[in-house]
Design a binder for these strands. Structure first.
Length: 637
RNA sequence: GCUGGCGUAGCUCAGUUGGCAGAGCGCGGGAUUUGUAAUCCCGCGGUCGUGGGUUCAAGUCCCACCGCCAGCUCCA
């Protein structure tokens, strides 16, 4: 007998009683599954030891996971029915954040997106038939026999990987059997609303040397309403695509003849970028950073010392030969900053030293991963290296994290997720170094009340780090800031400082970027704001629209006046109708439009239309200047 | 890099079984003098991604390469 606790009540049941029977005993109805000591079980799974049980109902996210998992099976069954049992070989079919996928190999068939409706149709049939989904626990030998007979070569491989202590279970619906740990809904009829979205390739076991399977992706929810909402979200994301916005707003360009992954900043993008970089420099100046500039290429010897040629070479552009020496285009700025640090003997009195640079680096990324501004081959890191003593580490980390969050807030982000990655097994550096570093990271995050997760053992071999992700307007997370200890480079370059004891000591080095890269961050910003950048960042802040040609002189006067106030202004002097000019300003997402006609000329006023708030009516020019300057100062959206 | 899909005017796209390259927007010229999301007319604009091949004939079929997209993998 085992003891189970359900909703505060305690029961004695036979060991191996299914969760469903236990819940029934407790008088609980409508549960999809349950959490048994924190693990999600379905109703058919036997409970083998005393446990705390929390039922899972449809309105809880965990129930979705159960249902989506079953949909993956239903899809697999549909594929087998359409393409033949022997032809379809199943890989893995897990759930995702919003649905499920299944990796399959179908002999002689290349699926295309046109095949999806047919598969969906078959899935609906299976759901309609409402087959019971039955769990069966079988021995390893039986499992092997079963999947050998089914010609499921990938499943056999999975069986090999299942640890001997684990129970092997299969789930059956009608004549379909799948190796699966579960959990599942009790019958196919309970499946919710779903849609197959796309097909892609995926290596078996994520290994490029193994065969590539076809991955069929689907999304699923209990309600059609939620499904529709999700589909709308995709449309919304598509509307916000920075690649489209970048072209429409004339921000940037990636030109095939220049090269893939290499960004050309157009004048509008250039103006925006200058504002961003000026702001960035000011903020760094306030916090005692010193600015440095370093070359784009460096001698191979430098990259040998840094170790990049050992472990980073595949990501570097091939070398160029100059006067019998090899040079590499830089993939990182650190070795240069270190050379600057080492240019003289450093005293503990001048630490921490904070060297900052908007350093443009080049990395040879595989062609398949390039993506607009988000993933490119040449980009500018908002980079800095902080060199300090052990005693200073904690303050430095605290200050840096605070800096990162404050800067991201200025750009309009309000939600952050922080990840701390700790010591991996193959790490270098002393235990003491790691402890000081990791503790400082944890304390900084805790003192700032930030929501964080620890990725145990997820750090680089050369040091622990903090990554900050931001949540954008439609809930997507983007990694921006990273604060990374480096115990490797100070050793390799023999960096030292002279301590109060007049001896040489090894400093701590921290590599950090707040925005990540200017390119990527710009992509994120564009998507976050759907192209309508806050006034302070907008390349054009005000567009003046004369109602007719005769108002052009007054418009030009206004333009000069606003320009002298430091605002970015242009006048639409085209021979177009007012409506057309308003529309174009709107499409260009210009924050403020000033309409100038007879009334405004006579009264010396301006008629203000804000992108955010619509027609604000007539205003004294001075009042408008005050208004817009306030928005700029506050970095209002 | 790998798998699949796609490359037609500056942009968005149409182009049937192989048979004279099209539209809208944009751009140039003209008319209009406009009050809060598209005024009208005319015109310029393409070696159909590049290079081979099949064919009387290729945007269309075949091959290779380049680029883009969805993923895998990787990552700022």
């Amino acid at each position: 007998m085992i003891t189970v606790e359900v909703e505060g009540r305690v029961f004695q049941v036979e060991e191996g009683t299914t969760l469903g029977d236990i819940l029934k005993m407790a008088g609980i109805e409508g549960a999809i599954g349950g959490k048994v000591n924190g693990k999600i079980y379905d109703l058919q799974t036997p409970v083998r030891s005393s446990a705390q049980i929390i039922p899972i109902y449809k309105n809880q996210p965990e129930s979705l996971e159960i249902m989506r998992h079953s949909l993956a099976h239903i899809m697999a069954q549909a594929l087998k029915e359409i393409y033949g049992k022997d032809k379809v070989h199943l890989g893995v079919g897990p759930t995702t954040e919003e649905g499920f996928y299944y990796d399959v190999e179908i002999e002689g068939v290349r699926l295309s997106e046109d095949d999806l409706p047919k598969i969906e149709e078959k899935m609906r049939e299976i759901i309609q038939k409402n087959y019971p989904i039955l769990r069966r626990e079988i021995s390893r030998e039986e499992a092997k026999r079963l999947f050998e007979n089914l010609k499921e070569k990938y499943k056999l491989e999975i069986i090999e990987r299942i640890s001997p202590d684990d129970v092997i279970s299969v789930y059956e619906q009608n004549d379909f059997v799948d190796l699966c740990r579960g959990p599942h809904i009790p019958s196919t009829g309970m499946a919710g609303a779903f849609k197959l979205t796309h097909i892609s390739g995926a290596y078996w076991m994520g290994d490029a040397k193994r065969p590539m399977l076809q991955r069929i992706h689907g999304i699923a929810f209990w309600d059609h309403k939620d499904l529709e909402e999700r589909l709308k979200f995709y449309e919304e994301a598509k509307k916000r695509d920075h690649r489209r916005l970048g072209r429409e707003l004339e921000m940037f360009l990636i030109d095939e003849t220049v090269g893939p992954g290499l960004v050309l900043w157009l004048p509008k993008g250039g103006t925006y970028r200058k504002v961003l970089e000026d702001y960035w420099r000011e903020e760094h100046e306030k916090r005692g950073y010193q600015f440095v500039y370093t070359p784009h290429i460096g001698n191979a010897r430098l990259w040998e010392i840094s170790g990049h040629l050992d472990y980073y070479k595949p990501n570097m552009f091939p070398p160029m030969q100059v006067e019998q020496e090899e040079y590499f285009v830089k993939p990182m700025n650190c070795p240069f900053h270190i050379a600057i640090y080492k240019s003289k003997v450093r005293s503990y009195k001048e630490l921490p030293i904070k060297l900052a640079e908007l350093g443009t680096v080049y990395r040879y990324e595989m062609s398949g991963v390039l993506h607009g501004l988000m993933r490119v081959r040449g980009f500018t890191q908002d980079d800095a290296h902080i060199i300090c003593t052990a005693e200073q580490v904690e303050d430095v980390i605290h200050e840096t994290l605070e800096f990162a969050i404050s800067m991201l807030r200025d750009f309009g982000f309000r939600e952050f997720k922080v990840y701390i990655s700790t010591k991996p097994p193959d790490a270098i550096g002393s235990q003491e170094q790691w402890e000081i570093a990791e503790n400082s990271l944890k304390r900084a995050v805790e003192s700032m009340n930030l929501n964080y997760e620890i990725d145990e053992g997820g750090g680089a071999f050369y040091g622990p780090k903090i990554d900050v992700k931001i949540k954008d307007a439609i809930g997507r997370l983007w990694q921006c800031s990273t604060i990374q200890f480096d115990f490797n480079l100070p050793e390799r370059f023999d960096m030292t400082y002279v301590g109060p004891d007049n001896k040489r000591h090894r400093p701590y080095m921290i590599h950090r970027a707040l925005l990540g890269s200017i390119e990527r961050f710009t992509g994120v910003l564009l998507e976050h704001y759907a192209g309508a950048l806050p006034v302070w960042l907008s390349p054009v802040q005000v567009r003046i629209i004369p109602v007719s040609e005769k108002h052009l002189p007054y418009s030009k006067e206004l333009e000069m006046r606003l320009r002298s106030e430091g605002l970015r202004v242009e006048t639409d002097d085209r021979q177009e109708r007012l409506g057309a000019k308003i529309r174009d300003a709107e499409l260009q997402k210009i924050p403020y439009v000033l309409v100038v006609g007879d009334r405004e000329v006579q009264e010396g006023k301006v008629s203000v239309r804000s992108k955010k708030e619509g027609d604000l009516g007539s205003m004294e020019l001075e009042d408008f200047i005050k208004h817009i300057k306030e928005k700029i100062k506050n970095k209002a959206p």
